[in-house]
């Protein structure tokens, strides 16, 4: 049924039939449906036709929104998951809360955020971040600390990093300077 939600793997929790859109979506304006979910998981895939996986997420509870034009969003509690770049797993994350916007490919993590990478070993801690799944870029803020395999960074207010954490920078310095 959630096959309608292109780009998303079917949540592990079945949704009430009454919440599903009826009829041919082409004939009607998009309709937003809301469903409360206990534990579940899904994969977000690119909407460029290639269906490249951007990020996957698991949650303990969630309020999910989906539309008849195949977009997904929602607010999830106690989450963990994986950031992907170019279809490959890049790093893992945990957070108290996550918000996925129906209109973008981004995932916002809020509270107790930790992003970890095993090779090379490193971790990013922060209060909040947004992961742009298409660009493969993490934008972090609040209480940032980078604990990489051989160095630590503290005391910065905003940080931009690639998903593997092999490049971390203050946002305006992320792109190499000419």
């Amino acid at each position: 049924m959630l096959a309608l939600l292109a780009g998303c793997r079917t949540p592990s929790v079945p949704l009430p039939e009454a919440n599903l859109p009826k009829g041919d979506p082409k004939d009607e304006p998009p309709v937003t449906r809301t469903v409360n979910s206990a534990g579940g998981q899904l994969d977000r895939k690119s909407d460029d036709g290639k269906g490249t996986i951007l990020w996957s997420i698991e949650w303990e509870s969630a309020t999910l929104e989906y539309t008849t034009d195949q977009r997904f969003g929602g607010r999830m509690k106690n989450v963990k998951g994986v950031f992907y770049t170019q279809g490959q797993p890049a790093s893992s994350f945990v957070a108290t809360e996550a918000v996925a916007d129906k209109g973008t490919n981004s995932l916002r993590l809020i509270g107790g955020v930790r992003v970890t990478n095993e090779n090379p070993k490193g971790a990013l801690y922060c209060g909040e971040l947004v992961y742009d799944g298409v660009k493969g870029i993490i934008d972090a803020q609040k209480g940032i600390e980078v604990d990489y395999e051989s160095y630590r960074v503290r005391g910065i207010e905003a940080l931009r990093a690639n998903a593997k954490l092999t490049l971390v920078a203050t946002p305006e310095s992320f792109e190499p300077q000419p």
Binding site: V146, Y148, S150, Y151, R152, V153, R154, G155, I156, L167, V168, A169, T170, E172, S173, F174, P176
Partner: peptide
């Protein structure tokens, strides 16, 4: 602040950084 974990290098007081 940026520090290596062996305590050999530290960099402090920057406003922009890239690693």
């Amino acid at each position: 602040e940026i520090k290596d974990k062996a305590g050999n290098m530290w960099v402090r007081g920057y406003s922009r950084m890239r690693i």
